[in-house]
Design a protein around this nucleic acid. Structure first.
Lengths: 90, 90
DNA sequence: CTGGATCCCGTAAGATACTG
DNA sequence: CAGTATCTTACGGGATCCAG
């Protein structure tokens, strides 16, 4: 729960499964989440090894986030959770 | 996450799998949790249908909590989560 | 424009005392 | 025994502001 819990980590993982994504792209796709939330959650997820952070020194700077293999495996878990919710009407 | 999240619900489910358990028994087994936490979490879990509450009109009163089938199925999910953590060293 | 830091608030969590 | 009442603290969450 400490790794996957909270309000946004699951959504972030979901949106990252398509491939490396920029900070603001995430911010746009996760409509209801403030940039602070995304930044905090990404930092935690980087520390737990779910995602990697890449800084591209263009101008203006670009920062992309990408799933690690561990992050991909987490998506499998989330899918189990999802199926469980659906099976029990939740 | 809303159903299983928080700090104590998983532990409560785990301790209830042995069968109907009394409030104070839970309180003793979940060392670090105050009675307030347990009471609040149990109330939520009753509302989401994970557990049932049974009042036995002895003197003094006894109250036991028991897993519903839905609660049992949640244990399966938690086990998946646990296995996932173990497999990835967490 | 980009990514992120700061401020403020509400709720969860924790400790303790009290009640039927 | 099984909670409730009350208070304090910690953290998640949201809006806003800052730097490159």
């Amino acid at each position: 729960m400490r790794i996957l819990g909270g309000k946004w980590k699951a959504s972030i993982l979901w949106h990252l499964q398509a491939g490396p994504t920029r900070f603001n792209a995430l911010s746009r796709e996760l409509g209801g989440a403030s940039k602070k939330m995304i930044a905090e959650r990404l930092k935690e997820m980087e520390e737990t090894g779910l995602v990697t952070r890449q800084v591209v020194a263009t101008k203006p700077v670009a920062v992309t986030y990408e799933l690690t293999p561990f992050g991909h495996s987490a998506l499998g878990i989330l899918e189990s959770l999802h199926d469980w919710c659906v099976d029990h009407d939740v």
